[in-house]
Design a protein around this nucleic acid. Sequence first.
DNA 1: AAATCAACGCTTTTT
DNA 2: GCGTTGATTT
Length: 722
Amino acid sequence: MTDPHDLSAILNPLNEAQREAVTAPLGPMLVLAGAGSGKTRVLTHRIVWLIQAQDASPHGILAVTFTNKAAGEMRGRVEQLLGIPGGGLWIGTFHGIAHRLLRLHWREAGLPQGFQILDSEDQQRLIKKLIKAQNLDENRWVPREVQWFINSNKDEGHRPASLKDNNDPTRHQLIKLYAEYETACARAGVVDFAELLLRAFEVWRDNASLLAHYRRRFRHVLIDEFQDTNAIQYAWMKLLVGSEGYPFAVGDDDQSIYRWRGARVENLQQFRRDFPTSKLYRLEQNYRSTGAILAAANGLISNNTGRLGKNLWTSGERGDPIRLYAAFNERDEAEFVSHRIRDWVAHGGQRREIAILYRSNAQSRVFEEAFMSGRIPYKVYGGLRFFERAEIKDALAYLRLVSNRNDDQSFERVVNLPTRGIGAKSLDTVREYAKGAGSSLWDAAAACISGQGSLGPKAASALSGFMQLIERLAHEVSQLVLHEKVDHVLQGSGLIEHYKKDKQDRGEARVENLDELVSAARGFTPEGVESELPPLEAFLAHAVLESGEGQADAWEDCVQMMTLHTAKGLEFPMVFLCGMEDGLFPHQRSLNDIDGLEEERRLCYVGMTRAMKQLFLTYAEQRRLHGVDSYGMQSRFIKEVPDDLIEEIRPRIQVTRPVAVSRLRSEESAAPGMRLGGRVRHRKFGEGVILNFEGNGSTARVEVNFEHQGSKWMMVEYLEPM
DNA sequence: AAATCAACGCTTTTT
DNA sequence: GCGTTGATTT
């Protein structure tokens, strides 16, 4: 047993800056933590320090993160340091904590006790349905955009009633849809993700005694990734902290990459204004990357304006230079990466130490093809997760209906799946009736069967069959344990049969996933507030909130492939930043406004700082994009890395390339430095890249893609190589 | 109700 | 160019 007041275990592993932050006197604190500077360590050690040095009760500490993964890691490390399970400690995601509060205070929040959660796909379906029900033109009222309107307003704390239409008919209609959406959610007893946060905020704002209780309880509020907080998360934090609490915010403005989904970097500065007594700490010593990598990242990010200011440094060695490879096309790029991976493995490295990072998911395909033919095991991150798969959502819809007949989304999803003769027309009748009666689809269906509304006898019997099925399942399942419930509903629903008929490959995988769902139910243990709910309801809520990476993935030694966004928070000995071309990265749609461009730059910064030992930047001079070949310029970000840090790798000769290239190659003596993809300068048009070539000697003409003027054909003599 | 076809659109993602 | 989706066909 360790002496509870021996703090050496907590403090010894820290550097001075970290120790200062961890042991800072109680009060509002903001920690600017650079990439790889030990941010999680400071957060976890602070928690333990509060408990062991300040005698804070674990009960009085709230720690909030954005992802379940981060929350899990934090809890694990705290428990490891404490040497005991950190029961009583509230560590969770914003949404998880909000969910917990709403389960505890569903009455005050005006929610039904068994409310369920809508994921974004469900939300979009519902919105689409509402738009259709209004007979609005779906081209004018795009569900995605309406969804964005609703969510961003919720993120900002706005209810439909508080929104002004400013005599703008479009806005007026959007607000109306928002209001209708709210009504529909209330009737079905469901809340979406943004609603969790807003509702949790409102329940405190509108219940003084409840708020007072939580203010008294949670004196210590620690928030991770503070630069990613949105308006409602910030407001919620501020409300809880009040004037007595001790907020401990950790973030990095240079790693703010989620502005597009409502994150407000400004919250870092706002924090300083709202808590004028707050102390600011900086963690700038990096333990992850070599000096060269850090210098490159610093050089890049220094091009951004309005930074809070931070310079990462390391006491480690400078290491290898950043390597830049100009590929002919995207396949050559992938080949190059493959070669480097083989070299790494041949020298004793592991594949899991390598990350391929790209701006957009579509870029993974070419790499996958190359790795597949090169027999290099890889894993692509991103894409659908387990609980988001169609068949799983179908199964969950059955379970939700069994649990709550008024869940209209689920009703619509499975009423005719597998097909049982309930067509669009019959459903219209039911919908119409529900609309008139202001009831759920289930109740409307019951009414229609019993002769109200115009439903054909055939449809009525089919519908009645479905409803009896659900009632029967609900009855049969009532005494079973969770996984038996799931299993039984799956069997009874006919979903398994339905998917077995599916085209071999796909259908098989789907049935396997459904089996996996039963296993997931078997392995499910409700935690904390979840145990207040019946197991099935707890399981359903859990499934939405933690749609989870496929839990059990055989840990084969794989090259890791993911987008730059996904890579945040991770580190790898060897990193490839691929597709470094203007238009791809920075992305075309971010080129126009300076804020967008700066966010792209931060994204690049995040990518570079993932690398521990080796960093490669690659780009393709020619890339097939959306089916057409295009010629790009190398990313402006490459030029923002100090020259002396970069070592350019010349393309290998044996690469198959267009005939024109070899023709141009033969002209190199006549026009030194002129090659396809080479950079040239024109007196009037500025800089560009050579796209194409014809003729030879003094009659040679080239097509040049100029940075600003577009592409033009011209004589070589007017160009100078760069 | 399945199958086939044309249209579309195409960053980034967590909860 | 590809995968998804909605509409139309049989």
